[in-house]
Design a binder for these strands. Structure first.
Length: 149
DNA sequence: GCCAACGTTGGC
DNA sequence: GCCAACGTTGGC
């Protein structure tokens, strides 16, 4: 089993939103590096749910993968903000997967706080200029974050 | 709203 | 294949 971190704008989907839904499709990823990580995810893998572009950016909880990557339907949907004119039914570059709620942290672990943790300094998340929205998390980093809850 | 940093596009 | 211009991300 592998560990990951995925960013979401809470206005779009927050950890409490995922809790209410139970499970949902994770779609709209339009970056090749992030997409390749999506495709590497297996059913049962867990991920830190990160809130981005909001008043309190940080890790807000945990989710898990319940269905491995498949072609992202939003790329073919002209009404979707994630529509990609170059994508077709036969050749859809983009991937989505299904995730489920696991846990909401009692408090969001803020980005500033995470940056203070020596155990996390290798994470792209805390590195200057990094905009990667899906990234792997090592066993050690996973355990370190769990210890901060 | 600002802006640094990055990824993508497209002319050459 | 280079690289300038542009668009986007995301923290502040």
């Amino acid at each position: 089993m592998a560990y990951w971190l995925m960013k979401s704008e809470p206005d779009e989907l927050s950890i409490s939103g995922l809790k209410k839904l139970g499970h949902t499709r994770w779609d709209g990823v339009r970056n090749y590096q992030a997409r390749n990580f999506l495709r590497a995810m297996a059913v049962g893998d867990q991920f830190f749910f990160y809130h981005s572009s909001c008043p309190e950016p940080g890790i807000a909880g945990i989710g898990k993968i319940v269905k491995a990557a498949y072609p992202d339907p939003t790329a073919l949907d002209g009404k979707s903000p994630y529509f990609d004119a170059k994508a077709t039914e036969e050749k859809n570059t983009w991937s989505a997967l299904d995730v489920a709620f696991v846990e909401a942290f009692p408090n969001v672990l803020g980005l500033g706080f995470l940056k203070q943790q020596a155990a996390l300094e290798q994470m792209p998340l805390v590195q200057k200029g990094s905009r990667l929205s899906v990234m792997p998390v090592t066993d050690e980093q996973w355990a370190a974050v769990l210890g901060l809850r």
